[in-house]
Amino acid sequence: MARILIVDDMKFMRETLHQLFSQNNYQVVGEAETGKEAVKLYRELLPDLVTMDLTMPEMSGLEAIKMIRSEFPEAKVIMCSAMGQKKVIMEAIESGAKDYIVKPFNDLQVIEAINRALKS
């Protein structure tokens, strides 16, 4: 069972993803509200995958991906953001994101992205 860390500053979004992952036989090992917290929890939990919001207080999702991937190059991160501009998506992928999901998303999109990232 894949272990997932959910990172989003919106409690509602974390709860939505948590429920979706649990229903699809993934284990949520942690949740973070900020990029800073995400880096700390990644080091502690070493999850199989991270879903990362882009816009958060203290440290953005992009900064957090760069920090995590500099220490753990094999880290698998999927960006989840309401910002779907091509420039932002490209920057996330160049920073090491395996995939990019634009909010609002449908459940199937998220599960497919997770399965692709875990296989990569």
Results as ranks from 00 to 15, higher is better:
Q27F: 11
I4N: 02
L46W: 15
D9K: 02
I89R: 07
E37V: 11
G35F: 05
I111S: 08
T55W: 00
E37Y: 09
I93D: 07
M1L: 08
E58W: 13
A92I: 07
L62W: 08
I68Q: 01
P57T: 00
T51M: 09
I65C: 14
F12N: 12
K119G: 12
N115E: 12
T55L: 06
I93S: 03
A97Y: 03
A32M: 06
I111W: 13
V102W: 03
V102Q: 04
M1T: 07
L108T: 11
A113F: 06
A92N: 05
V28P: 00
L54P: 12
D99H: 04
Q23E: 12
D9V: 05
E112R: 04
M90Q: 09
V110T: 05
G35S: 12
A32Y: 05
S60F: 05
N25P: 13
E71H: 08
R43S: 12
I89C: 08
A32W: 02
K11W: 11
V29E: 01
G96K: 09
M83H: 15
F21G: 03
E74H: 08
Q109F: 07
D53V: 07
K76A: 10
I78T: 06
K103R: 13
F12I: 14
D99Y: 00
E58M: 06
D48I: 00
V39W: 04
A92P: 06
N25H: 15
F105V: 08
G61N: 07
E58R: 10
L46R: 11
Y26M: 03
L54K: 05
G61A: 07
R116S: 10
M59Q: 10
I89D: 06
E31R: 07
L118R: 00
Q109H: 12
M79L: 00
E112H: 11
I68K: 01
T16I: 14
A113R: 01
N106L: 00
E33C: 14
T55A: 04
G84C: 03
I6S: 01
A38D: 03
I65H: 09
F72R: 15
R69L: 09
I89P: 01
L108K: 10
F12K: 10
L49R: 03
S95K: 12
K103H: 10
T16E: 13
L45C: 08
R14T: 11
I78H: 01
M79A: 00
L17P: 00
P73L: 09
F72Q: 13
K11H: 14
L108I: 10
K11F: 14
V29C: 05
D107H: 11
D9P: 12
S95H: 08
Y42G: 04
F105D: 03
L49C: 06
I101Q: 01
A113W: 02
K36C: 11
K86A: 14
G61P: 13
M52T: 08
F21C: 05
I68M: 04
G61M: 03
D99K: 00
V39R: 11
L49G: 05
D99M: 01
P57Y: 04
S22A: 14
M79Y: 01
I6G: 00
A64H: 05
